[in-house]
């Protein structure tokens, strides 16, 4: 076992997902199996192989610097869980800006 419930809890925090104790106990061994079998990739991923990030070799796709109409504010905010003064309202933030 390389992935403990504690590891899963730490990852869940990083991913901002609350997990119940039951979920943690169920997930940890499942994830462990998945990750162990995925470790297979390192068998052939030798230093001389270049990684592929994009399936097709396109480069330099640009748009011209032209202004396009924005959304009406009402549309932008229509789906907001809370809004105030044409802004999205969010609960108080504890952490500082990056």
């Amino acid at each position: 076992m390389t992935l403990t419930p504690d590891d899963v809890a730490r990852l869940a925090r990083l991913a901002r997902i609350d997990l119940t104790v039951e979920e943690l106990t169920k997930l940890a061994p499942q994830l462990d199996v998945i990750i162990a079998s995925n470790r297979l990739v390192s068998e052939v991923a030798t230093a001389d192989v270049t990684p592929t990030s994009h399936p097709l070799p396109l480069t330099n796709v640009f748009r011209s610097d032209e202004v396009v109409a924005s959304l009406p504010v009402a549309d932008a905010l229509a789906m907001a869980p809370a809004a105030e003064e044409d802004r999205f309202r969010v609960p108080r933030i504890l952490e500082e800006e990056q």
Binding site: I35, N38, R39, V41, S42, V44, A45, T46, V49, T50, P51, T52, S53, P55
Partner: peptide
């Protein structure tokens, strides 16, 4: 070990 290697497998 994981993502980087997986991208190599993709190649």
């Amino acid at each position: 070990a994981y993502y980087g290697s997986a991208q190599k497998v993709r190649t």
